[in-house]
Write a protein that binds this DNA or RNA. Sequence first.
DNA 1: TGTTTTTTTGAACGTCGTTCAGGTTTTGCG
DNA 2: CGCAAAACCTGAACGACGTTCAAAAAAACA
Lengths: 200, 200
Amino acid sequence: MGRRSDHSREQIARMALEAARRIVREEGLGALTARRVAGAIGYSPGTLYLVFNNLDGLIMQLNAGTLDELFALLRRAAESGDGGRASIRALARGYVGFSLEHARLWGAVYEHRLPVGEQVPPWLQTRIERLVGLVETPLRELAPERDADQVRLAANALWSGIHGACILHLSGSLEKTRGGSPLEIADSLVDHYLRGFCGT
Amino acid sequence: MGRRSDHSREQIARMALEAARRIVREEGLGALTARRVAGAIGYSPGTLYLVFNNLDGLIMQLNAGTLDELFALLRRAAESGDGGRASIRALARGYVGFSLEHARLWGAVYEHRLPVGEQVPPWLQTRIERLVGLVETPLRELAPERDADQVRLAANALWSGIHGACILHLSGSLEKTRGGSPLEIADSLVDHYLRGFCGT
DNA sequence: TGTTTTTTTGAACGTCGTTCAGGTTTTGCG
DNA sequence: CGCAAAACCTGAACGACGTTCAAAAAAACA
């Protein structure tokens, strides 16, 4: 078959990402192959390579979408609180909830590995950093006496902790028996860390 | 070629794991293939399957060895402290140090994914849980008034935090600029969490 | 209409994990 | 020692993977 012009390049990209999203959501990143995505949108594998550099590019765009969704959720969560401790707790719970509800899509963000030597593109890196930034605002309110570097460090520490709880849960590495759900772990981290960070 | 009997099955397994270790240490898990391991030990790919169920089995045995090394290191670290806060700090720093020094071997433990439906075998699961257990002993000393479940939760929380810091660093997801090294993040987590956990 | 341009294909390449019929060497036995 | 039986190891083969690109086909243009 030759030229069809049924869809523009942008349309094909959108369709491919949509199909990829469905595959990853239902079967995980391991089930995502170029042939499957192509088949799902009624095009041949070669066509995908007119739209994406390679599968890694497709996956990174998929992950960018997932991170955008997560960002929107967390921004709402942060605004729902009163701006201090409640916001941070809401952020933590929002992150845990997202990682549980969209486990495979969220997992794909951290499961995917670039070939050695390749760098995470800035437009994806930015989306990750933007997330950690959400913690800084309420942290600043909560501990006005701390300088920017200390707040940044605390935000990274809290973020690492919540993230670690989620990822250890996803990989099944955390003890299931009496070990605490990721939600309990996240709450514990936030409560005790904050109590230590700003003496309250 | 036919029967050789140059090495016993156990010897072949040891040689294969040694070769796999070198490959992963130098080039990462992505460079590990059955053909490469087989070639490195002077056997054909088929022979590997007489010794391991499949590549996943080889990788999990490799990871078990890595976790054993980590456990030995952390046990020494915990004993070096006075048993309380210093031990926990030493554990955190030991974990971070290991993850940095043996980045690719350590990363392989968490990068490797079983095919869907497969479970992590108990002999590997045990090695992971044993690690978190190392945190509980000094935690108990530090907060004698807490019951076992609370100590367990705190150990999991601290472990998740340290682990999260390391894995975000490895994947390059943490801001490099003024974000704090994994060591700083780990110290911050331990110090502030412990101050909140046992009011000191 | 014929010609050019654009778009899409799908066979092909090299790689992967994995299998297994068959060849080769050792072993056991008379 | 000779010869069958057993044990061991090979390597070609299979299907699937990411990726490429000559060529076919359709659209656009003349």
